[in-house]
Computed example of a mutant assay.
Amino acid sequence: MTKRITGLAAALCALAGMSAAAAQEASLDDLAFLEGHWRGGREGLVFEEIWSAAEGGVMTGMARGVSTGEDSALRVLEYIVISEEADGVAYRFKHFGADYSTWEENGPIVMALTELGENDITFSADPPSESVKSIRYWMPDADTLQADIVLVQDGEEGGFSLTFERAEK
C-alpha cells in the first residue's frame, strides 16, 4: 500500500507542477487552518465539517450533509483521515448513508496532496476513484472555508463547491 501511495504521490506532484521533494516536506501543520467546526452548504443542503487538530500523525474530519425543507433528512456522512506518510500527506475518506452503510465497496477513496499554498490545499486521485478526482480546501478570509470538489461521472468532469462559515462555539 505504501509503495502504491509513494508512486501515486510522485506522479500527482509531477502533474501538478509540485516537486516530489515539496510533497515530502508537507506536513499536517500545513493543514491546521482546517481545524474547527464549519457550517454551510449549497441550495437544499446544509453541510458541516468538523476537523480535529493533528495528533499522532493523523488529522480526522467528520462531515454531515442534511437536506433542507419539508423533506429534511440526513443525506450523507463522511469520515476522513489525513495522515503523514513517508512519501507525503494522504487523504482517505468513505461516505456513509443514514443507516451507516458505506457507499464505497472497495475501501476508502485515497488521494495525495498535490498542491500546497497558504491556507490552500488540493488533494487529487490519479486515476480518479469511481467518482472523485480532487478536493481543494482554501480560505478566502479568516472565517470562511471553501471546498471545491471535482467529480467524474461517465467520463465527464463536473463537481460543486461548498462555502462554510466558522460555526459558533
Rank of each mutant, 00 (worst) to 15 (best):
G41F: 05
A98V: 06
D71K: 02
G88M: 00
W51A: 01
N106A: 11
V58P: 04
E165A: 14
G41Y: 01
R4T: 12
A142F: 00
E70K: 14
E104D: 10
A23V: 07
H95W: 09
R166N: 04
A9H: 04
E104Q: 14
A53E: 07
A142E: 15
I121Y: 05
D154Y: 08
V81C: 14
H37Q: 08
I109Y: 00
I135M: 15
L116E: 04
I82E: 00
A20Y: 05
E156V: 14
G44R: 05
D154F: 06
G65V: 03
S131M: 12
V110C: 10
G17T: 13
M59P: 03
E48M: 08
S161L: 05
S134G: 13
L162M: 03
G158T: 14
N119E: 14
I121V: 15
G41E: 05
S67R: 06
G159I: 09
D143S: 12
F33C: 06
S101G: 15
A23E: 05
V66W: 01
G158C: 06
S101W: 03
K94V: 10
E105W: 04
S161D: 11
A142N: 11
T102A: 15
A32T: 13
P127D: 09
S83A: 01
Y100F: 14
E115Q: 14
E115V: 10
A147Y: 05
A53K: 11
A90Y: 02
W38H: 02
L116F: 10
G7F: 02
E43R: 14
E130F: 12
E70P: 10
T68E: 09
A63R: 04
P127A: 13
I5M: 13
G158P: 10
A125W: 02
V66L: 03
D120A: 01
A26N: 09
I109H: 02
G97K: 12
T163C: 13
P108F: 02
A32N: 06
I149K: 06
S27H: 07
A112M: 11
S19D: 06
S124K: 07
L8Y: 05
A53C: 06
A86G: 13
H95C: 10
G107E: 09
R64C: 08
S124Y: 05
A22E: 13
L28S: 07
D71M: 12
R4V: 14
F93S: 01
R64P: 00
S67I: 00
I80Y: 00
A10Q: 11
D99Y: 10
E78N: 10
V76N: 08
G41C: 04
L77P: 04
E85Y: 06
D126L: 11
D126K: 14
P140N: 13
D71S: 04
L8E: 09
V46N: 12
P127T: 08
G61Q: 01
E43N: 09
I109E: 00
K94P: 08
C13M: 04
T102F: 09
P127N: 10
S72V: 11
A16I: 10
E25S: 15
V89Q: 05
F123I: 12
E168T: 12
L31P: 00
